[in-house]
């Protein structure tokens, strides 16, 4: 049973590591494109719906849609950056580095899903809100941007963990062939990756509700924005627990 575990050091990790890096890069970009794609599409759909109701404000709606989509693209761009890093940095080939790279790819790939969908939902609600009440465009756009800035933060956590896993060999971590360390790096990536999905979507829903509300009652928009920021931040608590567990898995094992 345990024979292969003892012979880990004798395996030639060079080709395995190269293959692993490419798989990790593919995972990062492939999974990471889901969220931004769905989110931006939802945003565009709501904007088109709004224009069909209020053709007169199509210029305003298109501008708001483009701003919202630009922010919703952020998490996709994070995934692109991590995919590049995974493909073009060359670590010392070993089992732990393989675990760390696969973990980094999964972290960013899964972690970009939630924020992409969430920022898209916020943008979509903002577009709907502006089409109902075009005069509130300024208030709604500010609320949308603040909400999207908040909804991006799970993706930022995922990116941080992915970058730490990729550059960990710079801190003289993940240079050996210990199964436990390799698995803990992979687990850290999975943890923050999956853990960022829910908070991203949730804070996006909060931001969307706030955009809708700011369109209905623009004079209360300060109070609405405050509620959104507090509520959205609290809905990210579980994502932050995942971040903490990933930190523990990386630095305290």
């Amino acid at each position: 049973m345990g024979a292969w575990l003892e012979n880990l050091a004798e395996i030639d990790w060079e080709p395995v590591m190269t293959a692993g890096r490419y798989v990790a890069g593919g995972l990062a970009m492939g999974l990471g494109a889901i969220g931004s794609g769905v989110g931006e599409g939802h945003n565009a759909g709501e904007a088109v719906d709004g224009i069909s109701r209020q053709p007169a404000v199509s210029g305003d709606l298109t501008r708001t849609m483009l701003v919202g989509q630009a922010v919703a693209e952020t998490s996709g761009i994070f995934a692109l950056v991590i995919a590049f890093l995974l493909m073009f940095t060359e670590p010392v080939p070993c089992m732990e580095a393989l675990g760390a790279y696969l973990g980094g790819g999964l972290a960013m790939g899964l972690g970009a899903i939630g924020s992409g969908i969430g920022t898209g939902v916020a943008g979509a609600q903002a577009a709907g809100s502006i089409s109902r009440n075009p005069r509130t465009r300024g208030n709604v756009t500010i609320t949308m941007l603040l909400g999207q800035a908040l909804a991006t933060s799970p993706a930022v956590f995922a990116l941080l963990i992915a970058v730490i896993l990729i550059f960990a060999q710079g801190f003289e971590m993940y240079t050996g062939n210990d199964l436990v360390l390799a698995v803990s790096a992979l687990a850290a990536g999975l943890c923050i990756g999956a853990g960022a999905i829910g908070p991203g979507i949730g804070s996006g829903i909060a931001a969307g509700g706030a955009c809708d509300a700011a369109g209905r009652r623009p004079e209360a928009s300060t109070s609405i924005t405050r509620t959104m920021l507090v509520g959205g931040a609290v809905s990210q608590s579980t994502g932050i627990y995942a971040f903490v567990i990933a930190f523990i898995l990386i630095f305290f094992i």
């Binding site: 908070p199 949730g202 804070s203 996006g204 829903i205 959205g232 809905s235 579980t238």
Partner: peptide, 9 residues
Amino acid sequence: GVGEGYAAG
């Protein structure tokens, strides 16, 4: 995460 976000919205 999703549930708390719904409450906040």
